[in-house]
Design a protein around this nucleic acid. Structure first.
Lengths: 214, 214, 214, 214
DNA sequence: AATGAATGAGGTTTCATTCAT
DNA sequence: TATGAATGAAACCTCATTCAT
């Protein structure tokens, strides 16, 4: 009570955000391990160490938890990518750096969930049906794609990338390389290191999209 | 009365198989549209136009329906691929033909479901837990990968494929290209034709995996 | 077609009755082993070696099968008892003979089912709800009880049975001795022979109901 | 805030046990009236005045409810009998007191259910299949039988009980007297009072098992 | 008459969500 | 604010009964 109500509130607010972070982290873990439907709100709460009801003070539904995880993941991926793209290097180096990111610990799990969401019609519908979800879902992918496209356009401009291949094809191929199934095959089953994988994939990719003469 | 009981039984058997085919088709449709958990046995039955209980005369559980769909799909894909690979053409032509298959109507839906299964931990677990499922799941993907690998090895042998890139990388990249998300981006969102897509992807892919000097 | 339609019909009728007998025998077996609800019509049919639908040509419902078994059992028990009671022996000998019957192979199973019916509220209700069932259920037990009572009255008349103990008490005690739980305890668990059991029970019983002076 | 969390927890715990008691009471009622299979969890819940789901917070399945009822009943019967047997009276008085217990309101219903369970193969199987059930089922009856046997052995020792009749026979006869069918015949149909019935049964029984000279 | 595929009512169980404490 | 007991809709599955062949 000595504290100003402001500082008190901001402390509370901080705790609240921290709590939300913990819930999302736990939820992400369970969703990744069991899938959306087989994960129960009970289990998420148990992993955070709080009561089931408490979750509903932060999120109004299980679906909203999924949406929040999605939004947070995409935001983080976007900002990380932006950081990478800000570097003063060749287009090729940038994309290879991004590939490496996707094949490194944190992202591998992140991507696993995102792909599960994108490939599972029910999870997808959940995100689409959120009134704002549609916007987020479409727009975020668009934002991601735009960034990759911009890099490739730079490449086309400086003559290192084939002008005869449509950019959207190349963007799509690039994203395809980041699939978690690919991660599973190469890292988990074939025991390659993320660095190796990223290097090889980048090499194949750049040969594939390289300008003819180069 | 001259009719043998054999012909009678085979008619019944035929009807039975046709009925099963219809159930699987409907289930595949609903699973694809709604995902495994949000699809109810009731709805599958309704689409076939039969009663819920009838489904259980053919499949002992919802999980078994999923397993049957999976088995059937994989079998069809494998045999279709084998047909394509039997042709007397270059490795490049073979893989491009396969890509075209995957981007054509039938396979697009087929792949959508398979990827959903593979990316969703719960569907995956369902298939793994079927006593024979584990074998099928792992072995079938292995069989697919082996076929692609063989084609690439041919290419390495005849000097058209880069010997410095590990085959498993190239196989993985190849499968990555068939992701239904890629289909969605290019065919649905960007309105390209399957032929265009397959041609471009094949071109990028083969440039990417081509031997250096070629 | 040479046969008169009468003999033809009577042949059919014979077959029909034999078929019904087989169904009832199978049903009795399954009911005894699994209980009424856990016995399925499918399994009864399978044991007879006929199709499920065929059962419904003979009995209009599963409940009716139970009722038929009950009626048949009671009828057989009654007529067997009458046979025994017709013998020209002492009351004591008659009742001991009846006890021996109940502890011998055939009756042990028979009684098991009857007691299951009588002690299970659902089976009982099934029999009571048959419009004529009520009559049968009550009346048949009454008939049985009357026969035992008559023997005891004879005993009271000839001075061998205690006149101070109400007959209904003695009748009830007598029937209590025939419980299948008793059979299970003495024959199955304690490995006594039916003859031993019947002799001992009769001895205890007759000492118990004997006239004071005797 | 002075209240210890202990007192709080113990309140909750008390409520919980009370709730369980109500569920078991309702279930016992419905099982007794309709039998295990024809009793629906819905109806049990309705009688308690709670929702179906609530039942599953206390018991993980319908079968477990049956097992709990059985365990509770047997425990109560055993401890009541022990109380009676602790009295400093003759063997005869003890057994007559027990008979009276069984023919009094509370036990009549209790026994009805227990006999239904024991005579119905399906209910029996449910209890046997509970991993611990087997032990309980067999052992509890054994415990009961042992107590009765001990009283009879006392009688044999003090010369009031016939040494030529095997104890197991006498125990079995004693239990037979407690059958709910006997209750139904004498109390319900013949309108006798429990006291009358117990007195007569005890008299017949003790004359039956009495030592010859006495 | 015999079959057995089809039906669909009804049962048990789960779990996201609410709400009194 | 946090709790977790209570709710009840909805899912899967069984099986007595029907009926076209």
């Amino acid at each position: 009570m000595q504290h100003t109500s402001t500082s008190h509130r901001s402390l509370k607010e901080k705790q609240r955000q921290e709590r939300e972070r913990l819930i999302l982290a736990a939820a992400e873990e369970v969703f990744t391990q069991k899938g959306y439907h087989e994960a129960s709100v009970d289990e998420i709460a148990a992993r955070v160490g709080i009561a089931k009801g408490t979750i509903y003070l932060h999120f109004s539904s299980k679906e909203e938890i999924l949406a929040a995880i999605f939004a947070r993941s995409m935001q983080k991926i976007l900002s990380d990518i932006d950081l990478t793209l800000d570097a003063d290097t060749t287009p090729q180096a940038k994309l290879e750096a991004i590939l490496l990111q996707f094949y490194t610990g944190f992202y591998s799990r992140q991507m696993q969930l995102l792909y599960a969401i994108f490939h599972s019609p029910d999870s997808k519908r959940i995100l689409m049906e959120k009134n704002e979800g549609n916007k987020t879902l479409q727009e975020t992918w668009r934002a991601l794609a735009d960034r990759i496209a911009k890099v490739l356009e730079e490449g086309k401009a400086n003559g290192s990338v084939d002008k005869d291949t449509p950019t959207n094809i190349m963007v799509s191929v690039f994203f395809s390389l980041t699939s978690p199934r690919s991660y599973e095959r190469l890292i988990v089953e074939d025991h390659m290191t993320p660095e190796e994988v990223a290097r090889y994939l980048a090499r194949v990719y750049f040969k594939g999209v390289a300008a003819q003469g180069s």
